[in-house]
Computed example of a mutant assay.
Amino acid sequence: MAEVVGRLGIVPLASLIPEHPSVNGLTLAENWHTDTELDPWGWRVRFPGEGLAGYGKFIKKKAVLVSRGWLPAYLAAAGPQQSLEERYESGLATREALTLLQIIRANEGIETRQLRSIADMKAKEKKTAFDNAVTELQGSLDIVISGVKQRLNADGEPNGWNSTSFETAGHWMKEAGIQPFEGTREEAVTWLRSGMDGSWAPEAIAWISKVHGWK
């Protein structure tokens, strides 16, 4: 799977892009959620943890892996051209997203429960707003899912389900030793298309170009 992600650059966890492979489609159903080396659900943690691919709900609120080789160009081609503060002032981002991003910037790698607590969004009625804001930040490529952390109780013992952790895309790249793309948005789109030619189906290239508004 590491070879597939490296070759194709962008691979969704489940079927999403027409005529394009997904992790789900390339693996055996019986291996999922088995907590073994062959469990693809565990790879969503290993890939970002080992610096092999950025991971998050990047496209249409669906989970996607983007290889380390493609991520700089993908961020330049599909990521925000303004800061979140500027987008918020223009009415293009929610207040909840702005609040969460500011907390994540100050606490790179923060896990979900901690993030909700600091943002004062632990109440049950605020869960939907929190989930929507986290998804919004992934869709705009401001943040990535950097892994999963074991929840611990006050005594430092494992307690409950593992919790997703987040960090800014820029911080993840820096930690993984990945340099930002040197060039314009248009040059980044050209770079990605050259990588897609020959390995992506024409239908897949047309679909992702339409989704991101690439001319």
Score class of each variant (00 low, 15 high):
M1V: 15
V4L: 14
R7H: 04
I10L: 03
P12I: 02
L13H: 02
L16K: 09
P18R: 04
E19D: 14
H20A: 03
H20S: 05
P21G: 02
L26Y: 01
L26M: 03
T27I: 04
T27S: 01
L28C: 06
L28Y: 07
L28E: 13
L28K: 12
A29P: 15
T34R: 14
T36N: 02
T36L: 02
E37T: 12
P40W: 09
P40L: 12
W41Q: 12
G49P: 13
E50I: 06
G51V: 07
G51T: 05
L52R: 10
L52A: 09
G54E: 08
K57A: 13
F58D: 13
I59E: 04
K61H: 12
K62A: 13
A63G: 06
L65C: 12
G69F: 03
G69E: 05
L71P: 07
A77K: 00
A77R: 00
A78T: 07
A78Q: 11
Q81P: 01
E85D: 10
R87D: 01
Y88D: 05
E89Q: 06
A93T: 14
A97C: 05
L98F: 05
L100F: 03
L101R: 09
I103A: 00
I103H: 01
E108M: 12
G109I: 06
G109S: 10
I110F: 00
E111D: 10
R113M: 15
R113N: 14
Q114K: 15
Q114M: 15
A119Y: 12
M121C: 00
K122M: 11
A123D: 14
A123Y: 13
N132W: 09
A133D: 04
V134H: 06
L137A: 02
Q138Y: 13
G139P: 08
L141T: 11
D142I: 15
D142L: 15
I143V: 14
S146R: 11
G147P: 00
G147A: 02
G147D: 01
V148E: 10
V148G: 06
K149H: 14
Q150I: 13
Q150Y: 12
L152I: 03
A154P: 01
D155Y: 11
G156I: 10
N159A: 10
N159G: 03
N159M: 09
S163H: 12
T164N: 12
T164V: 11
S165N: 05
F166Y: 11
H171K: 14
H171D: 11
H171F: 09
W172K: 02
W172Q: 06
M173S: 01
A176E: 06
G177E: 07
P180F: 01
P180I: 02
F181P: 01
E182G: 07
E182T: 06
E182M: 09
G183L: 08
R185H: 08
E186W: 00
A188D: 03
A188S: 04
V189D: 07
T190S: 08
T190I: 11
L192P: 00
R193T: 05
G195C: 08
M196C: 14
G198C: 13
S199N: 07
W200P: 00
A201R: 05
A201L: 10
E203H: 04
A204E: 09
A204L: 07
I205H: 08
I205A: 15
I205C: 08
I208A: 02
W214P: 02
